[in-house]
């Protein structure tokens, strides 16, 4: 995997000169490469990684399995496009799974809120055959980052 992307995915706050030192390339090369990633749509932006579980009243997340009927020409794309238009929808994935096709992550203020969204908005979409809703209780690890893990060096000082 590209080492520059790897570093940026771990910490987007590294400066260009730090990245250049780490990779053994010039700062100019770093700048150009990042610019290229942006223009190619590979780097889409930089955002803070937030542990929402620690934020009061930050709502609830549900994971919804959608079974749908693909369209002859557009396959799953058309229905996926429709699903992702909703502001409540955080992520949409097409899955290789037995029981469903699209995995949708939805954020709402309450369970009721989410339930209403699923029953009134998602289930009623044309080509949706069935839905199964699962509520997320706690995030232990997200985006490769373990949450609430103590950052303590347990190595002994020996020799």
């Amino acid at each position: 995997m590209d080492r520059l992307l790897q570093l940026l995915s771990e910490n987007s706050e590294f400066t260009n000169s730090q990245l250049a030192a780490m990779l053994g390339i010039t700062e100019e090369e770093v700048v150009n490469q990042i610019e290229k990633y942006r223009s190619d749509g590979i780097i889409l932006g930089n955002r803070a990684l937030i542990n929402w579980d620690k934020v009061p009243n930050s709502g609830i997340t549900a994971i919804i399995e959608l079974k749908v009927t693909p369209k002859p020409d557009t396959g799953f794309d058309e229905i996926a496009q429709k699903v992702m238009m909703f502001d409540e929808v955080e992520s949409v994935y097409l899955m290789a799974a037995d029981a469903y096709d699209l995995l949708v992550m939805v954020k709402g203020e309450s369970m009721h809120d989410v339930a209403m969204f699923v029953s009134k908005r998602l289930s009623t979409l044309e080509s949706v055959i069935s839905t199964a809703t699962h509520f997320l209780l706690q995030r232990y690890k997200d985006g490769g980052v373990a949450f609430d893990k103590e950052d303590v060096d347990r190595r002994s000082l020996i020799l």
């Binding site: 080492r3 570093l7 730090q18 030192a21 780490m22 990779l23 053994g24």
Partner: peptide, 14 residues
Amino acid sequence: REQYDIRRRFIVDN
């Protein structure tokens, strides 16, 4: 090794 190498360059440069 790849991780060590990144850190090595970084720390030497600093």
